[in-house]
């Protein structure tokens, strides 16, 4: 018997009785215990818990809504500053969401000498997150996306036009020698329209500028499929990565993200390869010190392009 059949036979003999799939978030019955064998769930002990957190009261304490919902194109076009308060991009990410001061004296872990931001989001930032229903408020989603992305070492700009992207990129990467752009309308940045049958030739790309499908507010990730990468290796091998998405293309969480992916697939066909990218390549393998730029991009910038530009015929 082949190993395949041997394995499958053993499994068939051993697998337990059929257990149904649970409802996912957003579906009826989500979060309710399984009918047949309710696990003695932790966290549901008796009821003298004084306050239920997570009830609506926690709401967003006045989401800082950077710009009112219908940002007039002109007014923002000049104000394309990085949005989130901590406008510290990549390298000098703030020094670690320090463990509760009480927890350990200086000696502690995050070797104090390095800019050891944990890769975790700033503890304070997403606190405003358990928003009751950010999905209904696009501005809150954008704000959250930006906050989270910056906390994981990325940078975000809201821009009103492609020309603004060009000038910002020139400012940010003045020494870039090799730029590849896959974004319609940004051909002038460098190489574009080419294919690279040997991906090794991409080794010296300084900046790759690509259009992603959408961003995810809860984790700062952007979804991009193969057709938009030029080459699969490009977003990983480039020294710096720039992604462009529509400002309105931010979904609240990963569940919405996968619904969105299904829709995109239905419209554009199936992908052969696709990825979520959340921030620059990073590692904390050496004493938990966060270092940006492990093997791949040292920086990741996301441009959130205002709706109007798309309506005007870009993309």
């Amino acid at each position: 018997m082949s190993s395949r059949d041997k394995i499958l036979n053993t499994i068939k003999g051993n697998q337990p009785a059929q257990r149904p799939l649970p409802p996912l978030p957003g579906e009826a019955g989500y979060g309710e215990p399984a009918a047949p064998a309710p696990e003695p769930t932790a966290g549901t002990p008796s009821t003298d818990g004084p306050h239920e957190p997570g009830t609506a009261a926690a709401a967003t304490p006045g989401t800082p809504a950077p710009t009112a919902s219908a940002t007039p194109a002109e007014s923002t076009s000049s104000a394309a500053e990085p949005i989130a308060a901590a406008s510290t991009p990549s390298a000098n990410t703030p020094a670690a969401p320090a463990p509760d001061p009480a927890s350990d004296p200086a000696a502690s872990t995050p070797s104090a000498d390095t800019p050891t931001a944990s890769a975790a989001p700033d503890p304070d930032a997403p606190e405003s997150a358990p928003a009751p229903d950010p999905a209904s408020d696009p501005d809150a989603l954008v704000q959250k996306f930006i906050t989270v992305l910056e906390a994981i070492g990325g940078t975000a700009y809201i821009v009103s036009g492609l020309s603004r992207i060009v000038s910002l990129l020139h400012e940010e990467y003045p020494d870039a020698r090799r730029i590849i752009s896959g974004v319609p309308g940004l051909e002038s940045l460098g190489e574009s329209g080419q294919r690279y049958p040997d991906p090794h030739t991409l080794e010296n790309v300084d900046v790759a500028v690509l259009s992603a499908h959408f961003g995810v507010a809860e984790n700062g990730a952007c979804w991009i499929t193969e057709e938009r990468m030029i080459e699969r290796a490009l977003p990983f091998i480039a020294q710096n990565l720039v992604l462009v998405i529509r400002r309105n293309d931010i979904v609240a969480d990963m569940h919405e993200a996968y619904s969105r992916i299904e829709e995109t697939e239905a419209a554009n066909g199936a992908y052969g390869f696709a990825t979520f990218i959340a921030g620059p390549s990073k590692t904390a393998d050496i004493e938990q010190s966060l270092v940006l730029g492990a093997h791949g991009p040292k920086s990741m910038t996301v441009f959130l392009l205002d709706e109007e530009m798309f309506d005007a015929g870009f993309f």
């Binding site: 890769a119 984790n219 700062g220 199936a270 390869f273 990825t275 921030g279």
Partner: peptide
Amino acid sequence: ATGQPITTYSSHFKKPRTG
């Protein structure tokens, strides 16, 4: 795992690339 909201890369491999 680490307290990050997601890993930097969550890559979905479906088909081999050409060649």
